[in-house]
Simulated assay, not measured.
Amino acid sequence: MQITSKELESVAAVEAPRFDMYTGIHKALRAFMADTLLAVGRMDPLDEDEVAQASGRVLDLLAACAGHLRHENDFVHAAIEARAPGASAAIGHEHEDHVKHIAQLSDLVVVLRAAAPQARAAAAARLYRELALFIAGNFEHMHVEETAHNAVLWARYTDAELVGVHDALVASIEPQEMMAIARWLVPFQNPQDRFHLLADMRAKAPAPAFQAVMDLVQPLLTTKEWSKLTGALGIAAVPGLVAG
Rank of each mutant, 00 (worst) to 15 (best):
G137T: 02
V110Q: 14
I80R: 10
D97G: 08
A136I: 00
A115D: 04
A122M: 10
H143S: 05
A119K: 15
T147K: 01
H95I: 15
G92Y: 04
L105R: 11
V110S: 08
G86I: 15
A103V: 10
E146Q: 11
E96H: 08
D97C: 05
E130G: 00
L105N: 04
A115F: 02
A116F: 01
Q118H: 11
E81H: 11
V109Q: 14
E96N: 07
S88L: 03
A132L: 06
G92L: 09
A115C: 10
I135G: 08
F139Y: 12
E81L: 03
I80S: 13
A87R: 14
H141K: 02
A151Y: 02
H143M: 04
D107G: 13
A82Y: 03
I102K: 01
R120D: 00
A119C: 07
H95S: 10
L131M: 09
D107M: 09
L112N: 06
D97N: 10
T147I: 13
V111Q: 14
N150K: 09
L127A: 08
W154K: 02
H149W: 11
A124E: 09
H143P: 03
R113A: 03
V110L: 13
A125P: 00
A121D: 09
H149P: 07
H93T: 15
L133H: 11
V152K: 03
A119Q: 15
L133Y: 06
A90L: 15
A90H: 12
A115M: 06
V144W: 01
R126T: 15
V144D: 14
A116V: 01
P85R: 05
I102T: 07
V109W: 14
E94T: 09
A116N: 08
K100W: 10
A89P: 07
I91K: 01
L105E: 02
V110C: 04
P117V: 00
H149D: 12
F134E: 04
R113E: 15
L105I: 12
W154Y: 01
A103Y: 05
E96M: 12
L153P: 04
S88Q: 08
R129I: 09
E96V: 14
E130Q: 11
T147E: 02
L112P: 14
P85G: 06
A122N: 01
P117M: 01
K100S: 06
I135A: 07
A116S: 08
H101F: 12
S88K: 04
A132R: 11
A124P: 05
A122Q: 06
R120V: 00
L153G: 03
V111P: 12
E81K: 07
H98D: 15
M142H: 11
I80K: 12
A155N: 05
G137V: 04
A79W: 00
A90T: 11
A79T: 02
H101S: 08
Y128E: 14
Q118Y: 04
K100R: 14
G137F: 05
H95G: 09
E96P: 01
A84R: 12
A136Y: 08
I135W: 02
V152T: 04
A115Y: 07
A121V: 02
G92D: 11
R156H: 14
L108M: 11
L131Y: 05
Q104F: 15
V152R: 05
R113V: 04
D107N: 12
A121R: 12
A132F: 01
A155L: 07
L112C: 07
G86H: 10
I91W: 01
G86S: 09
L108F: 06
S106K: 08
Q118V: 06
A132I: 03
H149E: 13
R113M: 05
A155I: 08
